[in-house]
Nucleic acid binder design. Structure first.
Lengths: 155, 155
DNA sequence: GTAGGTGCAAACCTTTTGCAGCATG
DNA sequence: CATGCTGCAAAAGGTTTGCACCTAC
């Protein structure tokens, strides 16, 4: 899916849900969908301010909340108290491996895994709306670099 | 395992690692292991203050950090930005289902699930140290009560 | 015209830190 | 008696909110 298309879909759905489509929202959505990384709210603010220096922090947070609520963006905790976002549109669902060495986030997907999660839930009569699976450890490069030998927050 | 035993094990290992065993730590450990729930730092502070009103917030946080580092306690993000802890000693490893209706946390375990996670990681050359799997949705009771019909934060 | 959105600054909440005094080993 | 731990208060993130103004519809 092209950025333009994604942008249009977001605009259409927000309008349909009774939200207004403002310049700020257009900018924030464009920037959020332009990066294919997992960004923090603060990073997104910075990027937006490069184009319009007076976008407010509050607006970014408020827009992210709307986008999350409408399912266009997903928040994920990094384990160190931080929170990142990623856009969801045009991405298959996937889970994450978080490298404690270089902070890189790898994505993966395994259908069998998903099935077993649902099975486990069904056994307990639990109705699953969404899930979050994260593996923490070291990526290939960091293993080679010996990052896995020192403590995560080591000297 | 009896609470006394757990308490003793924690004391022994902390001492052995060169930590001191103070009244405050004994209290905090006792309280942390007394509850079988998933508690926030603030809740633990409150509970401890019932017995010793001048325990400091900083001490609770510092002690939780030591306990987490030594593997006696595990922190888990609740998805709403909050953080909870649970004691680990005498618990098998398990994953969590978080009910969005009553905030209850159900525990479950599935070996096959764990195996497939490791397999997925191995495919990408990723070395897993720990993982976190959470299913969000509604428990049986909340489904019956119709909580799943309203928005999570609904009126 | 009237909601809803925006910018600003202040409030908030949770966690961390600097420091002087205290207690443990 | 030296070092690690504690309590306090203040600082530090990151996120939310109150309010007056603005703008999309």
């Amino acid at each position: 899916m092209k950025p333009d298309q994604e942008h249009g879909i977001v605009e259409a759905q927000l309008r349909q849900k009774g939200h207004r489509w403002t310049n700020q929202r257009a900018l924030i959505v464009r920037m959020a969908f332009a990066t294919h990384d997992h960004f923090t709210a603060e990073q997104l603010l910075d990027i937006c301010r490069r184009e319009d220096p007076k976008v407010s922090r509050a607006t970014v947070y408020r827009t992210l909340a709307v986008l999350e609520q409408e399912g266009f963006v997903e928040g994920l905790e990094t384990g160190d108290g931080g929170r990142r976002f990623e856009h969801v549109l045009g991405h298959e669902h996937h889970d994450h491996m978080v490298c404690l060495g270089c902070e890189q986030i790898l994505e993966f997907h395994d259908d069998e895994l998903e099935q077993r999660q649902l099975l486990a839930a069904r056994r307990l009569g639990f109705q699953v709306l969404r899930h979050s699976l994260r593996l923490y450890g070291y990526c290939r490069a960091c293993q080679r670099a010996g990052n896995s030998q020192r403590a995560a927050k080591g000297p």
